[in-house]
Amino acid sequence: MTDPQSPYDSGTTDALDPANLDGHTIEELSAYLDAERTPTNFSIESSPGCQIALTALGRLRELTAHTLEAQAATEPAPPDSWVRGIMDRIALEARAGRDIPITHTARTAHLTMTEGAVRGMIRAAGDSISEVIVGRCQIDGDVTAIGEPVTITVDVSVAWGESIPLAADRAREAIHGQLAKHTELNIAAIHVMVQDVRFSRTAPGTGVAQP
């Protein structure tokens, strides 16, 4: 086990800045999720940043629910600071960021994808691996220039009892698959940094999510 805060430190940027989420805070989104998204909040539902953050928060919530269930099996629940750190990262990474170009032969075409959309996709791909939870996702390099090499760095937490190298490989493959499918980025490298080992949401060794 490592320091629960360090890999998910929100860094120097203000993760609570409402400008990151089209005027909303991560607390508002969490409360909105608590209320099962009712009554419908048009401002939240029409914000891409909020949508990306809500999706990631939903996955995080599912994970922590599994953790509480597993508590009886002697594993400690993750500290609030750990969950809080990931929530702050989600808020930061959901913002639109840079525009990533998409090629088209037509002269009229100005096609782009936001960096926030790509970060959200990377986080979802990593989280899809049952023994992995993504803490932080970073895209380095000039994504605004077609063909420029970019590097992806993802900090993850791996479930106790699982093979760390195998988990990292599976996360890397899932992320690479989604990037190759949805973007034209020239991926020079995908670094998966295992920052800590935590609770399981799978039966150890099976890679299968527990009910």
Binding site: Q51, A109, M113, T114, G116, A117, M121, H182
Partner: peptide, 24 residues
């Protein structure tokens, strides 16, 4: 969008910007 504007008999656009803001 280009096809629809052509059939709408309006001036063809000089720029059509489509931004993907979320995936999934």
């Amino acid at each position: 969008i280009a096809d629809e504007m052509a059939t709408a008999t309006v001036a063809l656009p000089v720029s059509i910007a489509v931004k993907v803001a979320s995936i999934g």
